[in-house]
Design a protein around this nucleic acid. Sequence first.
DNA 1: TATAAACTATGACGCAACGTCAAAGTCAAG
DNA 2: CTTGACTTTGACGTTGCGTCATAGTTTATA
Lengths: 251, 251
Amino acid sequence: MEYKIQELADLAGISSRTLRYYDKIGLLKPGRIHSNGYRVYGGAEVDLLQQILLYREMDVPLEEISKILHAPNFDRKVALQNHLRALSDHRDRLNLLIETVQKTISAEKGGILMKDHAKFEGMKKNMIEENEKKYGKETRAHFGDKVVNESNAKLMGLTQKQFEDHETLTTLLNQTLVRALEEGDPGSPLAQKACELHKQWLGSFWSEYSKEAHLGLVQMYVDDSRFKAYYDAIAPGTAEFLLEAMKRYCQ
Amino acid sequence: MEYKIQELADLAGISSRTLRYYDKIGLLKPGRIHSNGYRVYGGAEVDLLQQILLYREMDVPLEEISKILHAPNFDRKVALQNHLRALSDHRDRLNLLIETVQKTISAEKGGILMKDHAKFEGMKKNMIEENEKKYGKETRAHFGDKVVNESNAKLMGLTQKQFEDHETLTTLLNQTLVRALEEGDPGSPLAQKACELHKQWLGSFWSEYSKEAHLGLVQMYVDDSRFKAYYDAIAPGTAEFLLEAMKRYCQ
DNA sequence: TATAAACTATGACGCAACGTCAAAGTCAAG
DNA sequence: CTTGACTTTGACGTTGCGTCATAGTTTATA
């Protein structure tokens, strides 16, 4: 199927001016030029535009997109797989950002202080993971785990040791949660241990603590269907269970 | 706690040049100026910067951010709630985009044609939902359901009627899946009915059909832990169940 | 104490990716 | 045929910084 410029623009949700600009810089030429001078785009151009817009979604500069797409070894299928990974990473960062806002809200409502560095968790920045989104560059493999972890630690206002301890705590917390869930009693010593571990985990983000704020945060986990689903992926029912455990922990 | 310019920039993951620019345009003034002429930022500025970066995350222009933040009735708690909603919507759009890429990959691998309009599902565009992200403007309430649905239908290359049928089909598919899951047999007529409904659902995105492509897509749902969690939120085990049902459907 | 490197300031130029507008040709419907 | 919608090219402008130069201030080390 063929499209005139506004038709393709409407299809893709961009402006015709953008398409003319892409033509001018050689990024996306029309399939052919009609005898009346109008640009005509076909199926190949549609697929190319999809690629371009996926790269733009990740803020890749047009010049770089042009290099990628016009390389002799460009492979659409490989590119699509890379888009998938980049989008998935981006979604992960958004989840982190959402959790940061949730922690901020809980701290605010609970009348406690949140650590300054924690307020920017997940923001766009030159995190090494951010660079990993630039297609196929396995940054961790390139730089090694140590450099990546050092960078992450710095961003969290932690020393390397503290960061590793935090990672260990996260793992322990999840394991404890699962075991407590299997027991099935939100008031059990194991479940209460999980709440205590979660409190310790929050110590990386809040410079003070209140049970009110803690409970509010866990309530928000449950209220957000995607977060609930995420925690439930650890083991089904985890989010609700943690909330029930927290209710007892806070008495 | 107080920060010099680079300290705050590092904390927030932005450049000092950005902070100077924000100072110059009056968006974010330092808390005070040291006797040596250096900018000094405090807790209030940290909180303000968090707000600014959250708005920037959603591509809100600086001038608009300034109006919002400097309005007499600006309420930080309300703003944080609005950020939460905007981020959640953005994450939803990313999920849609991920699914679009998945459908594209499956169609490519299955050697079938995908509809052109479907290739741009979820892309940034002037969707009315996109406008809804601009803080507290309840677009659906403002314009009404009919206008929103018409807009969505147009974007999907559907008439209003077709769009509504598609929505109905989605609901029926989910309901059928849940009932089939309760039966517990992936080969049951009900489970096979669900697969048939999913095939019909895909008709809005693929101009042709192949079982290979269909199976590949459902496999991808299961392989993405977040999508798996999303489908499992309908009812735990839904994603895996659909995959098992599809294996029988494709024989 | 002196020195050099790192940090801070201001000013200014430049850039990417379009948005907006003007002027003129083409198309389609009444 | 007329008019409004669509297309073209060309050009100016905008936003949000990045980059660089120059000069003052701070910090760590010998």
